[in-house]
Design a protein around this nucleic acid. Structure first.
Lengths: 233, 233
DNA sequence: CGTTCGATTGACAATGATCAACCCTTGTGG
DNA sequence: CCACAAGGGTTGATCATTGTCAATCGAACG
């Protein structure tokens, strides 16, 4: 199993023995480079391994009533298709947003290690628990918040998750997302996302030029978004 | 661990040995009756056990920007706070909708059994995986669908889940939900939910009187909602 | 230099929210 | 037994947030 952040996070939730950590680290994997927009797994496929995102961003998406709806963003250390150990078919597309690098760990070998080291099963279950908490937040975000706080909440979440894996500092990060991506994630039109971002800029809450996003007044932004990072641990 | 449906479902995903099943069945639990509207677990609490819903309905809710947003409904056999094994604090209220009966299984004893029978850990992880899939569907429902298909999708989901636990037949079921509950789950106002339900009635897609809901033209309803029960197994 | 992609803008339309009643049923206390 | 209150459902009128359409602009790129 690759990636330090994944292992670090597994350690944070559950505590792993030396042997367990070693077994995890020794799991073989295949690395693959992805170009912007490339699809890792297609809806309907039955992947033979789990994907660990090592670098860059992935998004989970599917077309719902003629709209492309993004239901999750993944950052390095995430395992977007971990659930395929239990439910074999992917019911979404998994796409690279910007260039990225993934590692694939065979289901068979992973299952074997999980049988040998039950503590690892528990730890990976914890990963699913965290992802579920994020989905819940998205449900609330889409169901209850108006455009401005909704976008603000997403940006806060991204910033926090990126910070945890060392890809953001002081709310400053490199994001390959287009406004259309944000729109797909927030359930808004690109036009309205554009206006919402402009409003966030006007209020000096964010600075977003090219691929560089900076959250300027974190406290104020979190207040508007009712953001509480608790759910991300 | 109580409840046949939970055990049946665990068996459906993972296969459990005789010993594992016995260990599960023998877990002690405390039963509790809940009145309509009663709260099982409050936001911020750190429950000492997992809740297994035995009868009735629970909903997970929280106030987001002055709106009560429901992020999940639970039916008998579900374990709404299973994730608290990993993340100790509940960040939502868990409320009974209509009268219900729950069983509480101590975290300590559950953990012990999971240590003794790793196959059970894997099986319960599967439960979390399914719940996560439901959240994803809700994200898509709230993000991408207009009011009518959104409500239709929720009703299809409920019907399918209830059918699996023997609480619905031919799309006919007993639901204790008010229109306000639906509104909170769908991110719509009660007024608009009311009009949407009337439209569903007018098109002879549902018959809903008192607590009895019947889905009249399942195929047509699923078509409108783009509902595919795959994600529920 | 033309093409494409993403960002931006304006005009207009529409879905759904809000406000304010009103009705009906049910339950409760005098 | 009746009066009243409360909760849930229903309706109409009006408002506004957000979507749609269409066009423009600028940068990047072959």
């Amino acid at each position: 199993m690759p990636h330090q952040h994944l292992i670090k996070r597994l350690l944070a939730v559950s505590s792993l023995s030396e042997a367990e950590q070693r077994a995890l680290v020794r799991l073989p994997y295949a690395v693959r480079n992805l170009a912007d927009g490339e699809t890792v797994v297609h809806q309907g496929e039955r992947p033979r391994g789990c994907t660990v995102l090592m670098r860059g961003f992935l998004s989970r998406q599917r077309v719902i009533s003629e709209r492309n709806q993004i239901s999750a963003f993944y950052v390095p250390g995430d395992v977007p298709d971990l659930h395929c150990l239990h439910l074999p078919t992917m019911d979404h597309d998994l796409c690279s947003t910007g260039p990225s690098i993934i590692a694939s760990v065979s289901h068979g070998e992973l299952r074997q290690v999980l049988r040998d080291f039950p503590g690892l099963t528990y730890a990976l279950w914890g990963e699913t628990v965290v992802q579920a908490a994020i989905y819940r937040e998205w449900v609330e975000n889409l169901g209850a918040r108006a455009a401005l706080p909704r976008v603000a909440h997403l940006l806060c979440e991204l910033s926090t998750r990126l910070q945890k894996v060392g890809m953001a500092e002081n709310g400053k990060m490199l994001l390959p997302f287009t406004q259309a991506d944000l729109a797909d994630a927030c359930g808004l039109s690109t036009v309205h996302i554009n206006r919402t971002i402009q409003e966030l800029r006007r209020r000096r809450l964010i600075d977003w030029q090219g691929q560089t996003l900076e959250l300027l007044q974190r406290a104020e932004l979190e207040f508007i978004a009712e953001f509480d990072e608790e759910y991300l641990h």
